[in-house]
Write a protein that binds this DNA or RNA. Structure first.
Lengths: 349, 349
DNA sequence: CTCTTCACTGGAAACGTTTGCAATACTGGA
DNA sequence: TCCAGTATTGCAAACGTTTCCAGTGAAGAG
C-alpha cells in the first residue's frame, strides 16, 4: 500500500470530512453519507468505492455533526454520589459495558452528596442533549427534582430511588426481604439488642431496609429499640461516631447491621478501636455485598444483591426508554448470606 | 413484539432554541447569542432583556450545536482497564472533579484489559471529537498505539504509562524509589527470600518497580532470585495461582510484595488458604495504597502515592495541552509506609 | 455642518452531517 | 414504441449555534 502523495495530507491539520471523500470519489455528499451509514438505496459499487476512499483518506465521521442533525447523541449521563464508592464503581462498570455494547457512551458525573451539584449536573447533561440519564440521587425530596425530572425530554432511570409523581424507570433492590431474613436470623439466635446504622431515610434503600427491620421485630413480637438505630448518614464519619456511641451503651448491642459502604467502613473502624472482633464479641452483618468483601474479609455475613445485574438492568431500562417504551420499575431480589461475622455476640448466654 | 409505546409526549415538546428567544425579544439571533455568551459588544439593556426572556422560555443552550460550530466539545475521554479497580475509581473521581470545575465533562470507557477494545475506544472518542484523552493503556506496545496516538489532534495524558515516540503528557509515579525503600527495609531486617508478584512488564509501573527492586538487591550486594518473581498479570487469578506456587517453594519466601489491586487480592487469598498471617509467618507489602486498605486492614504496609493528586494532575496536564502548551511529564513521589504486615516472616532466624 | 469614530445591532455564512425531493437511467410490460 | 415502475444518484435544506461583516444612529472632532 505505498502511497505517493498521502504524506503531505497526513501532516496537515484539517480533518477530513465527508466533503473531501465525495470530491475524491467524484460523487455527491449525500451518496457518501448513504454509503457509509448503511442506507439501502446505494449500489454495491458505490458503497465499495466510497468505503475504500474513506479508508484511504482516514475519514472519521464527526459524531457532533451527526448528533446535531439527527437529534440523537448516543450518550447517557451517569450520575452518582461518588464513583469511589465501590458499589457505584461496579454499577458504572456493568452499566457502561452494556451501554457500549449498544453503541452508547457514558458521561460520568459525581455529585459528591451535594444536591446543588446534582442539580447542576442534571442541567449540564440536558444541555449536552444526552439521550438518557441514569442516576442515584442524593435525596428523593430535593426542591429541584420535580422541576428537573418531571416530563423529561429523555428517559430517566433511577438507581435504588423512588420519586413520586415523576415519569421515570427505576431499578429497586428488595432490601426489605434480605434484611428481614437477616434480622430474623439474629433474633432466632437470641439477639435482642440489634443496632442498625445506615444513611438517612430520604432515600429508598434506607426506608426499605427499615421496613424489613421493623417487620422482623413485629413478626417476632418484639418491640423496636429506636435508640439502637442510627439512621442519618452514608459517610464513614457518621457511622464511626454513632458506632462509638452505640458500643458504649448499656446494655451494649449484641449485633450490628451496617448499611452501605460508608457504614461498613465506620463500624469496622469503631470495632477495631475497641478491639471487638466480629463474629466473636459481636455479630455483624453488612447490608451490601461490597466487591472487596469477597476476597478480603470473606467471613462477613451480608445481604447480597447482584450489583452487576443491576447495572445491566439500568442500561436496558434506559435503552427501552429511548425506544419509546413506557417507564417501568424493575425489582431485584436480595438474600441473606450467613458467614462467620454474624456469629457470636451472645457470650452471656 | 407488540410492545406498547408511550405517547410521544417526549418528542412533541419542541425544545426552545435561540431563534425563539430572538423572536420573542424581537432582536436578531446574533444578539441573543452574544448576550448569552458574554460577548463584550452588547448593551446592558440588551443583555438584561435577552436573559430575562431566555429564562422565561426555559432556554437551554444546545451544546451539540455549540460544539459543532466552535469545534470544541469540552469533553475528555477517560480510558481505563476497569473502573471497578479502586485505584482507577479514585483517579476517575479526582480527575472528574478537577475537569468539571473547569467546565469539562468526562466520558468513561473501560477497555477491560483488551487491546482491541482499547483501540475501538480511542477511535470512538476521536469520532466524538473529545478535546483530550486521559488513558491508562493496557499495554505500551500495542500495534495500534502509534497509529492512534501519534501526532494526535487533541492532547493525550498517559496515566503511569510510557510510550516512546509519541507526543503525549504523562503522570508517572516514582515507584522505583518506594519499592527500593521497602525492599531495602526487608533486606535489613534479614529477609533474603523476597517474592514479588505483579502485572506484566509491558507497562511502566512494573518495569519501574522492578528497577527499584533490582537496585535494592544490588545495593545490598545480594543477587536476585528470578524464581521468586511472578511478573505477568494484574488480575487476581494470576496472583492467586502464582502465590500458591511460591508458597510451596522450598525455601519458602519470607516476604511478599504485591503490585496492584489484583495482586493484593490474589496474594491475600492465597495466604488465607494456607492460614498464613501477614506480619507473623510472612512479611507482606502492598505496592499500592489502595483506598479500602486505610480503613479495612490498617495494618498493611504499603508503598504510598497520592492517587488523588495524580488524578488532579492528569486533569491539569490535559487542560494545559488544550491550552496549546507542550506535553510534559509529571513525576509523583512514592514512599514506603511501614505497618504491621511487613513484620515477621523470619521465625526460623 | 460634515466627517470620523464609536457602540451596538442585524444579516448571513459557516460547522459536518442527514434526508426529503427531484432527476436520471434502465427495466420490462402493454 | 411508449410508459410506469424501479433503482440509483444529486441537490439543497435543514439541525442550533457562533462570528464575520456591513450597517445604523449618535456623539464628538474639526
Amino acid at each position: 500500500m505505498a502511497s505517493e502523495k498521502s504524506e503531505n495530507s497526513r501532516s496537515d491539520k484539517q480533518r477530513v470530512t465527508i466533503r473531501e471523500v465525495a470530491a475524491k470519489a467524484e460523487v455527491a455528499l449525500s451518496s457518501v453519507s448513504r454509503a457509509l451509514s448503511g442506507h439501502p438505496d446505494v449500489s454495491d459499487e458505490m458503497r465499495k468505492r466510497v468505503k475504500e476512499i474513506a479508508d484511504e483518506l482516514g475519514y472519521e465521521p464527526n459524531l457532533v455533526a451527526q448528533s446535531l442533525r439527527s437529534g440523537v447523541t448516543r450518550t447517557i449521563g451517569f450520575v452518582v454520589r461518588d464513583i469511589n464508592n465501590p458499589m457505584f464503581a461496579l454499577l458504572a462498570r456493568s452499566c457502561e459495558n452494556e451501554l457500549r455494547r449498544n453503541g452508547y457512551s457514558m458521561i460520568l458525573v459525581n455529585s459528591d452528596g451535594s444536591i446543588e451539584n446534582e442539580n447542576r449536573n442534571f442541567s449540564l447533561l440536558r444541555r449536552r442533549r444526552v439521550d438518557g440519564i441514569i442516576a442515584s440521587l442524593v435525596s428523593e425530596d430535593s426542591p429541584y427534582l420535580i422541576k428537573n425530572l418531571d416530563s423529561p425530554r429523555s428517559p430517566i432511570v433511577l438507581l435504588d430511588r423512588e420519586v413520586k409523581g415523576i415519569n421515570a424507570s427505576a431499578v429497586l433492590a428488595d432490601h426489605a426481604a434480605g434484611v428481614h431474613e437477616a434480622v430474623t436470623h439474629l433474633i432466632k439466635a437470641g439477639h435482642r439488642e440489634i443496632a442498625f446504622i445506615t444513611g438517612s431515610n430520604n432515600v429508598y434503600p434506607t426506608r426499605n431496609r427499615l421496613q424489613g427491620f421493623t417487620k422482623a421485630f413485629e413478626d417476632a413480637k418484639l418491640k423496636l429499640q429506636p435508640d439502637l438505630m442510627a439512621i442519618g448518614g452514608f459517610d464513614a464519619e457518621y457511622a464511626l461516631s454513632h458506632a462509638r456511641i452505640l458500643l458504649h451503651r448499656n446494655p451494649a448491642p449484641t449485633a450490628i447491621l451496617a448499611g452501605g459502604h460508608g457504614a461498613l467502613m465506620g463500624v469496622s473502624r469503631a470495632l477495631k478501636e475497641k478491639k471487638i472482633t466480629m463474629g466473636k464479641e459481636i455479630a455483624f452483618i453488612a447490608l451490601d455485598q461490597l466487591p472487596y468483601l469477597e476476597v478480603f474479609s470473606d467471613n462477613i455475613s451480608t445481604v447480597y444483591r447482584d450489583t452487576e445485574a443491576i447495572g445491566r438492568e439500568a442500561a436496558r431500562l434506559i435503552l427501552e426508554g429511548i425506544d419509546g417504551e413506557k417507564p417501568r420499575v424493575s425489582l431485584i431480589e436480595t438474600q441473606f448470606i450467613e458467614r462467620a461475622s454474624s456469629q457470636g455476640g451472645l457470650q452471656h448466654a
